[in-house]
Every structure is written in C-alpha cells, then in structure tokens.
Design a protein around this nucleic acid. Structure first.
Length: 109
DNA sequence: TTAATGACCTCCG
DNA sequence: TCGGAGGCCATTA
C-alpha cells in the first residue's frame, strides 16, 4: 500500500517520536515542508486508527499542549494514561513542561 | 469536478 | 493579556 501521500509522511514522523516526548501538529507539518498544512496532520491521524504498527498519536498534541484529539481515541482518558505511562505529566488535559518535552522532528530529520 | 470536512495555526480586537 | 474569528492545505464523497 504505497500511498506516498501526506499521510505517509505524517505516520513516519509520529512513529519516530521518542518515548516520553511530545510534538505538535504544526511542527510535523512544517517538517514536511507544509507548515500551513498543520490540519492535514490531524486529519491524517484520523485515518491512523487501526493501523499497524499503531500510531502513537497520543504523543502528538496541538501547539498549545492541549490534548485536543483525546476524544478521538478509544477513550479520552486513554491518551492521558499513555502519556503518563511514558513519564509525561498531564494537567487539565494539558502537557506540563510541554516546551521541555517538545520533540522537534526537523532536528531529528 | 465541485463541495465539504478536519485531532490546526496565526492574526486581529 | 485574553478571546474570537478566519485561512491554509490535502483527502474523501
């Protein structure tokens, strides 16, 4: 299934996110050369459900550090559980130390 | 082909 | 400083 589409790029980035780190949609989109396509990153996540290997979308949050897409998971609390399980602190559905835990794909790529 | 949607980001008041 | 609205791109129907 060689879609070679924007989604493929997004999946690669998200799957490369180290454990205990988080990134923003805009950062991923910008790394792909389409900082204005930040919405496409989230849209791609929508299709990432049931994929194998599974996409750690829980490590991807908006530039505010808010778990906006938590409702798209099996359960809203699942996203927070996964992040906390990796050592990320979540407060009021917000990633604490977001700036510190922020993982810049552009630097890894 | 056109129109509508979306887990966003940036700008302006 | 905080809040609200618009715009951007790609995919799907």
């Amino acid at each position: 299934m060689e879609q070679q589409s924007f989604y493929e790029q997004v999946y690669e980035i998200v799957k490369l996110i180290p454990k205990g780190r988080v990134t923003s949609y805009g950062a991923i989109a910008k790394s792909l050369g389409a900082g204005k396509s930040s919405r496409l990153v989230g849209y791609a996540m929508n299709n990432a459900h049931g994929m194998s290997p599974p996409i750690p979308a829980h490590r991807v949050v908006n530039h505010k550090g808010l778990l906006t897409g938590k409702f798209h998971f099996a359960t809203p609390e699942l996203m927070q559980e996964l992040l906390e399980n990796e050592g990320v602190v979540i407060e009021q559905d917000k990633v604490q130390n977001f700036k510190t835990l922020f993982w810049n794909p552009a630097e890894e790529l």
